[in-house]
Write a protein that binds this DNA or RNA. Structure first.
Length: 575
RNA sequence: CGGGAUGUAGCGCAGCUUGGUAGCGCACUUCGCUUGGGACGAAGGGGUCGCACGUUCGAAUCGUGUCAUCCCGACCA
């Protein structure tokens, strides 16, 4: 391709509205252009990159025995009614009506559609297992799209769905996909970590995420997830799912008797601990949440933090948020109290479900709110002064330096970009949608399903997050839009142009994806653009051509070698 | 949903306080000159100043509303 004809516009400056480096660079280097909030045009260079990623995904999926198909982007509400998600999916689901007033939605994912395909097309266990996938645009009406391609509303995704006769089959399908994913990301030049993640309210399900770990020193940390990992044994999990061994702490408040005392203006644990001159670990924190519209009281030791996803799962919920002040007021008055946040406790509260984190059960002579403003109960003990909630669960956020449950070593935390997710669905959709097959024993059984996603456009953006420098992008070779760019320094120099054209034509003939910068620009412009766009290799034809020498630059390392034109070509052909 | 900020040419911005009919850099077009790290000179083209209403003889500028974008937050008691 000739740069003079390539549809690309590089910018001298970074776009003002971009925050993270992949967004800044992709816009500036002319790969993408925003159409509207969270929705981007993929310009020719970007489209080449995306096709590279897609093809790697395709090859590995096909090799893993999956079959590609394409499902509609617009889906009828009926299917979503059947699965029960029409009412629970929330505002992320982009709903619309057709001219007849029929409810439709833009596909954020395709479990419903694939399940309908399977129930029509699969009648017998003999047809199983089967794994079907597609690569397609998805639309999710995110609350707050940001970070360019990393969290857009419309994005390209590969989604695969497996159907098996039983759990063992699913385990096998799942492991095949996990291996395919490792291959895919490795081929894309991305180091990923497979971490355990939350699998939602479906009991017994398993899910893993593939995370690109983000450099901690990165200026703008694009990783939206916290990943906890063990320094010794390889355990790793998303913070919404991570577990740890309880850290040792003082759990005896050493108060001699239980009494309600004045604790004015102690709205936070820190203030309360400082006022009483006690460690925060002998305080029992009480928090009111709203899970699917119902109030829930969560108890946790004062030094720890509630992990909302874990708490939500205790109640098999779909949605969770902390209660607003007016809601707290409502709960208090319903039980005859008027305490505000900071003085809340479980004693005497009516019509509210309660759960206690494991951290609170061993507390002795501890401090807890008593639903009276500016007062706390000190020296409290479970079973004597206050009943311990029947429901006890792990609802706490793991913290760095907690101990690994598998080996006892220390856990560390890092930021990650989720580029892939694999999930054991079980029979959630097949049962709800009555998708069954006839098994060996002649009985109708629901499919055992799994689903497996990869964010194609996010993977490309993550690659930029990991591979760039102050001058621009450094594409991994496998997903670069072109392999090499030939740059004649001066288009006025006939020899330079002639040699550059020769190199270009030889590479073209050898089916190399090659660019030639034949623009009548000054050297600086061409060299800056080559670095910015991030082509892995550059062959610069300059003055030294009189000695039959050109420059061979590797973008990844910025290493420059002086070689003959033939040697440069040979280097490319031997990649 | 709450808070903050910003909307002026494709991109980055100034002008607004103190109303008088729009400007700078980059990019673009033409010519000259230049060609190893984003040159230079000359001449051009391009903007209903987000939108609506209002105040005024007159609004990019003041007021109200609205829309959009960006950032932060969405309550750890």
């Amino acid at each position: 391709m000739r740069m003079s004809k390539l549809f690309v516009q590089t910018l001298r400056e970074f776009p003002a509205d971009a925050e993270v480096i992949s967004h800044k660079l992709l816009v500036r280097a002319g790969y993408i252009r925003k159409l509207t909030n969270g929705v981007y045009n993929f310009l020719p260079l970007m489209w080449r990159v995306l096709k590279k990623v897609e093809n790697i995904v395709r090859e590995e999926m096909d090799a893993a025995g999956a079959q590609e198909l394409l499902m509609p982007f617009v889906q009828p509400s009926e299917l979503w009614q059947e699965s029960g998600r029409w009412d629970v999916y929330g505002k992320e689901l982009m709903r619309l009506q057709d001219r007849h007033g029929r409810d439709m939605c833009l596909g954020p994912t395709h479990e419903e559609v694939i399940t309908s395909i399977a129930r029509e097309g699969i009648r017998s266990y003999k047809q199983l297992p089967v794994n079907l996938y597609q690569i397609q645009s998805k639309f999710r009406d995110e609350i707050r799209p940001r970070f360019g391609l990393l969290r857009g509303r419309e994005f390209i995704m590969k989604d695969a769905y497996s159907f098996d006769v039983d759990e063992e089959g699913l385990d096998k399908s799942y492991e095949i996909m996990a291996q395919a994913y490792r291959n895919i990301f490795e081929r894309c030049g991305l180091e990923t970590k497979m971490v355990q993640s939350d699998s939602g309210a479906i009991g017994g399900s398993v899910s893993h995420e593939f995370m690109v770990l983000v450099n901690e020193e990165a200026e703008n940390n694009a990783g939206e997830n916290d990943v906890f990992y063990c320094t010794k044994c390889g355990y790793s999990a998303n913070s919404n799912h991570a577990v740890s061994i309880l850290n040792k702490a003082e759990t005896d408040g050493k108060f001699e008797k239980a009494e309600i005392i004045d604790t004015p203006n102690t709205h936070s644990i820190e203030e309360l601990a400082a006022f009483l001159n006690i460690p925060s670990t002998v305080i029992c924190k009480a928090l009111i949440y709203v899970v699917d519209g119902k109030y829930v009281l969560a108890l946790i030791r004062g030094d720890r933090t509630v992990e909302e996803t874990k708490l939500m799962n205790v109640f098999a919920g779909n949605d969770i948020r902390i209660a607003r002040n007016d809601e707290i007021e409502e709960i208090m008055s319903a039980s005859g109290f008027n305490a505000v946040a900071g003085f809340i406790g479980p004693k005497g509260l009516k019509n509210i479900e309660m759960v206690a984190d494991e951290t609170v059960k061993d507390l002795k002579n501890f401090v807890i709110g008593c639903n009276q403003n500016d007062k706390h109960l000190v020296g409290a003990n479970w079973g004597i002064d206050i009943e311990l909630p029947k429901k006890i669960a792990d609802i706490r956020l793991v913290e760095e330096n907690d101990k690994c449950v598998d080996c006892g070593a220390e856990l560390k935390v890092t930021k990650g970009i989720e580029v892939g997710n694999i999930f054991k669905l079980g029979t959630k959709y097949s049962k709800a949608m009555n998708a069954t097959f006839t098994d060996k024993d002649g009985k109708e059984k629901p499919f055992i399903m799994g689903c497996y996603g990869i964010g194609i456009s996010r993977t490309a953006a993550a690659a930029v997050e990991r591979h760039h420098d102050e001058y621009g992008i450094k594409w991994p070779l496998a997903i670069a839009p072109y392999t090499v760019i030939v740059v004649p320094v001066s288009d006025q120099d006939e020899t330079q142009m002639k040699v550059a054209e020769e190199i270009y034509n030889k590479l073209l003939t050898a089916n190399v994806e090659v660019l030639i910068d034949d623009r009548s620009e000054r050297a600086g412009v061409k060299l800056k653009d080559a670095d910015l766009i991030g082509i892995p290799y550059r062959i610069t034809v300059g003055k030294t051509i009189k000695d039959n020498l050109v420059e061979f630059k590797t973008r990844a390392t910025n290493l420059v070698e002086t070689v003959t034109p033939d040697e440069a070509i040979e280097k490319i052909l031997s990649l």
